[in-house]
């Protein structure tokens, strides 16, 4: 399935959130991006989302939630991955604190505002460097890849990233 499909058939947020809950995720925090606006809106509607001020702070809250027995999801724009690298390196990866990272891919294929182009170009490689498994599914594969992410982070006890390409969810304008 090509990118055109992801762009033309956005995934509704409600079944995605349902599947997150069914997979055992029960703590949701992050910093918004327009590419996941419907997901955050759906979590807010269900009273299950804690908006943080910075992405690394959201990761810290997620780490605490995991220590307390919850299974966290951290939503962020890929710009926030830059903010997050020390938390991932010296907290989550070091202490083996899993979290599902839902990271949007601004700057995808170089078509975006200039502030997104550098991180857009290196996003998968940054995750590879940190040893964080990741997938960037199209709409048809996203629910299956969510199961993969849940299985992988339970097995490795480390963060796993689901990358959200433009058009995967209906966007907020």
């Amino acid at each position: 399935m090509g990118r055109g499909d992801a762009l033309s058939v956005p995934l509704p947020a409600a079944p995605f959130v349902d599947r997150l809950l069914a997979a055992g995720f029960d703590f949701f925090t992050g910093v918004p991006c327009s590419l996941v606006a419907p997901v955050i809106a759906e979590l807010e509607r269900r009273g299950r989302y804690l908006g943080e001020t910075r992405e690394d702070a959201a990761l810290g809250v997620a780490a605490g939630a995991y220590l307390a027995g919850r299974l966290p999801v951290v939503i962020m724009q890929n710009s926030g991955l830059g903010v997050s690298l020390n938390a991932l390196g010296s907290l989550h990866l070091l202490y083996e604190l899993p979290a599902l990272l839902v990271i949007t891919w601004r700057g995808f294929e170089g078509r975006d505002a200039p502030e997104h182009l550098v991180m857009g170009q290196v996003l998968p490689r940054v995750l590879d460097l940190f040893g964080i498994p990741h997938r960037a599914p199209d709409a048809a594969a996203v629910l299956a890849d969510l199961e993969w992410a849940a299985d992988t982070l339970r097995a490795t006890r480390k963060p796993v990233a689901l990358i959200v390409k433009p058009g995967l969810f209906a966007e907020h304008h």
Binding site: L50, E52, D56, G60, V61, G64, A65, L67, L91
Partner: peptide, 8 residues
């Protein structure tokens, strides 16, 4: 932040 997550 970690304390907040545990408290919640």
């Amino acid at each position: 932040s970690i304390g907040l997550g545990i408290a919640l």
